[in-house]
Design a binder for these strands. Structure first.
Lengths: 258, 258
DNA sequence: GTAGCTCGTGTAAAAAATACACTAAACCTC
DNA sequence: GAGGTTTAGTGTATTTTTTACACGAGCTAC
């Protein structure tokens, strides 16, 4: 890919071009009130038979994001998934075969869309795990740390951007949305206050449809208004969800000036 | 570094081990009321004579953070600098000599501690630039984008963690602190409200000393109480600075539930 | 028709954010 | 040393946001 012949080159250039890099996806899904992560059982060395994040080497002519998308496509046939780069991990000895740094992404998917494609190259088994159960799994590489970082990032993101909707079906009830926030933020929320807040943002469309097939009073269905959100963004609006458990306020949190 | 002989290997393993990676540092400093970034004039191909971020290849036996620290050490003899990984950049064609992905870090330094070490290997010239002037510089590689990302991250960080103090001398006045926040957040802050907020956090030690050598009423000097901050963190306290320019509140920002 | 669920709603009190202007303390100049 | 210049330091009233909290409505299953 060199265009010019270099005039003054760094020393030992070639010693540096011996590394590889990978992407790993922390794929979040939301089901039955729980936040879940998709893991695969590795079929290849190293860490054969360990649970691990789905990931792969980045091809020589492939961007990082493209590589992350490709993994999702191959694993579950999913396109256009919400992906965000989180952090790179490059400890010297993290991979036994050589120097491999990896870029962690988190992906948010609607679990109903997910149709695993058994591809014996990549994964012997594919399974959703509750986020809370991850520490018991003895994951491959530094994948446990990667999950923690991605989970932290998701917690932060969900408060300042309406990414949570990526985890819900297109039509959802406010209670489902609340449960989602509770699962991500790992806290309980007050029903009335939650609804007041969410509805005051004017980002939900009331579909004037009802839940069906439930053995109790059915709830209204809503839809996230992505278009309106785009407009608001243009105007400099900011979605913001705080948690603010300020039980004692002897040490106040530091809020707005001005 | 291999421990076991692998049994089942991925195909074409060797085709992947041909990449290199680098770290690049966006070094922030604060001087005369302005937020500045340190750039170097490149001496090596590619982009010779372009202004660029200080960065270098990661050595084969070196962690990413270590590499970023090393660059700072070499450039200015600085140890123990506040560093944070921000994002990796891996566009296929970002480096003309081959596949090179880079990890961007931001560094916060006290500008007075900075003593550039002219090292002709690395940098022909080293200069502080106002953040706002960066777009006119025609930087090497994708460094301009990296700076934007780091600046955004700094804006976010400074609201939720007391990292700003890394940019100030150990003893500072409240007005200096306010100017720092104004430079980073790119907004004006109200003096009385700012002071009220900052002091109410109980994280500043009043040194009972005065500024000297100024041609006006001298201000009190303060010190950041890092130890108390650590204690607060343990207790689950959260530093939080919002900006909240809520001129019209027809579209409310989405705050705490509960 | 009633037992068992979940849905949906409002208000009052507390806390936080905002807007705003003058006196105090030092130095400088003449 | 009087007056001018500059920045430091301070308090209050209003608005907005957050919080805490309980019960009737509507559906199903039996």
């Amino acid at each position: 890919m060199g265009e010019d012949k270099p005039k003054k080159l760094i020393k030992d250039l070639n010693t540096y071009f011996k590394s590889a890099f990978t992407v790993d996806n922390v794929i979040f899904g939301f089901d039955e009130g729980d936040l879940k992560i998709l893991l695969i059982k590795r079929q290849e060395e190293p860490y054969t038979d360990h649970w691990a994040l789905p990931g792969y080497f980045v091809l020589p002519d492939e961007d990082l994001n493209t590589a992350a998308q490709r993994v999702l496509k191959k694993l579950a046939g999913l396109d256009n998934v919400y992906l965000e780069q989180v952090k790179s991990f490059g400890a010297v000895d993290r991979h036994p075969f050589g120097r491999v740094i990896t870029v962690a992404y988190f992906a948010l998917i609607k679990i109903a869309d997910f149709a695993p494609r058994p591809d014996k190259d990549v994964a012997g088994e594919v399974r959703w795990f509750n986020v809370k159960d991850v520490p018991q799994l003895d994951l491959a590489f530094d994948h446990e740390e990667m999950i923690q970082e991605c989970f932290s990032k998701l917690k932060r993101e969900v408060r300042i951007r309406p990414v949570g909707f990526e985890l819900l079906p297109p039509k959802f009830t406010l209670t489902e949305l609340q449960h989602l926030y509770e699962a991500i933020l790992e806290t309980e929320l007050d029903k009335r206050n939650f609804r007041k807040k969410i509805l005051s943002m004017n980002l939900l469309i009331d579909l004037e449809e009802m839940q069906e097939g439930v053995a109790h009073r059915p709830a209204k269905l809503y839809e996230f208004d992505g278009q309106k959100y785009e407009e608001f963004l243009q105007e400099g609006f900011s979605f913001e969800v705080k948690e603010s458990k300020r039980k004692d306020n002897t040490r106040p949190s530091m809020p707005a000036f001005n």
